[in-house]
Design a protein around this nucleic acid. Structure first.
Lengths: 187, 187
DNA sequence: CGCGCGATTGAGTAATTTCAAATCTAGTGG
DNA sequence: CCACTAGATTTGAAATTACTCAATCGCGCG
């Protein structure tokens, strides 16, 4: 599977060929291999990423060096440490590949010049930010309303492909349970 | 305490007197008493709200009629069922007062005309949406990294005033623990 | 005084974690 | 084709954490 930036944007706003060329000129394509880091906690965050193909995880490492998965991002998703990206501060999370991955990279300057040159992209990014907010709220709700088993089932139903592509340990970290518990739940 | 819309907006973008008058003309002020609903689950969502004074809770009621607090909103905060508001669908959550509350109300039409007439408000709302996304991610992280006791302590440190203003039962629902457990943790 | 609501306490139970050990699996080199 | 290893997954048992249900307490208000 492979994401298409133009189709992705045109789900929200429509673009002429010229406009899309203008949009595209703000991005750089990069490739990363499994296990490589796109963002490293403690370092500046240069880009927001749009995933063309592959799979990455946004992680936070706590005081005890335990890793927690804040989000997965696959084809068609935007990801970054947005807090750090927009404020120009150091990353508090890391972004790491779970598969070989191709992304489009957008710097903050490119982002600003893109919105300045093509106002309707602001609406596009607003919708995306809102969608991110809503998705995060839904995940909070799943913590409030469901036990581990139910969260697991819902994830399985919503993103069956994740269970093919991601080691169980990673899913456990995303669900907020130990890998042993997840293993026991799967039956 | 009382929020000031102009000061609030000018933390992000600056406005002339005329511009602020234009902004203000898009809002309607409303007052609600304790226990009143601003949004009722299942009904259309007419407004996004900016809280001038008071305190409200965004709640979701699950299949077993249990209430879960997705968010609190106090002075200076924006709240709504954003999913329903932006898409014109029925609310899946309710918004209810914990205190007598005064809010500014913005319809979707007013929102659009405001952004259309004053482009920089789009940036303002984008920043707010992003802040919402980031705040929700932080809350997810607190579920992943902390036990109930730690979540409780962090909330206490971050929003001490909540503990004055909100019954413990409500805090327990926000933290995702039973009221009995919260009571035992407080020692 | 007595009611009602919120908060607390106790006891038993259920869910989840931790740590240690056992299995399983895919890939490697001989 | 086999043996071997590293990593991932599973299993067992004890300890911890949180939940439920029931009873009690404390306080403000009519």
């Amino acid at each position: 599977m492979q994401a298409n930036l133009r189709e992705h944007i045109e789900k929200i706003i429509s673009l002429t060929d010229d406009e899309f060329a203008f949009v595209q000129s703000h991005f750089v394509t990069k490739q990363f291999s499994r296990h490589e880091f796109l963002i490293t906690s403690g370092e500046p965050v240069q880009y927001t990423y749009f995933v063309i193909s592959g799979l990455i995880k946004l992680i936070h490492t706590d005081d005890s060096a335990r890793e927690h998965i804040v989000a997965f991002a696959m084809e068609d998703w935007w990801e970054s440490d947005f807090q750090a990206f927009y404020n120009g501060t150091k990353a508090t999370m890391s972004l790491q590949c779970l598969e070989d991955t191709t992304v489009l990279c957008l710097t903050l300057d490119a982002y600003n010049s893109l919105c300045y040159g093509l106002g309707k992209m602001e609406l596009f990014f607003l919708k995306k930010a809102n969608a991110g907010h809503i998705a995060a709220q839904q995940r909070i709700l799943s913590f409030l309303t469901s036990k581990a088993k139910e969260r697991h089932e819902k994830l399985l139903k919503r993103y069956p492909s994740l269970f093919q592509r991601v080691p169980k340990t990673q899913l456990a970290s995303y669900l907020g349970v130990s890998r042993e518990t997840l293993s026991r739940l799967s039956k």
